[in-house]
């Protein structure tokens, strides 16, 4: 899968939001908030082909988290990213 083009990650201190660039940005439902970890993952895989395994490895390599917990977190996160329409196959 890939991150959808046309989003800019913006920092609000410890919280982050993805804002749609361009004309569709007028629609406020297209603004998605991310926590620090999700923002880190987004930056790592932006504009690349990636899968759940890659994200899980990124989590276990960079955070104090076991693989199973990381997998569950990634599954939940990808579901919300898909619902928000910020990733595509």
């Amino acid at each position: 899968m890939k991150t959808r083009k046309g989003y800019t990650l913006r920092s609000l201190g410890k919280e982050f939001i993805l804002v749609a660039d361009g004309f569709e940005a007028v629609d406020f439902s297209r603004m998605i908030s991310l926590n620090e970890t999700a923002a880190f993952l987004w930056k790592e895989v932006e504009d690349k082909d990636f899968d759940a395994d890659m994200l899980t490895t990124l989590l276990t390599d960079n955070y104090d988290i076991d693989r199973e917990t990381a997998q569950n977190d990634v599954t939940a996160m990808l579901k919300s990213w898909a619902e928000a329409g910020i990733i595509e196959d």
Binding site: R10, L12, E15, I17, V19, V26, F28, S33
Partner: peptide
């Protein structure tokens, strides 16, 4: 409002 919510209402 949370920070992202506040950002969104100012944005619109």
């Amino acid at each position: 409002l949370s920070l992202p919510e506040a950002y969104a209402v100012i944005f619109v």
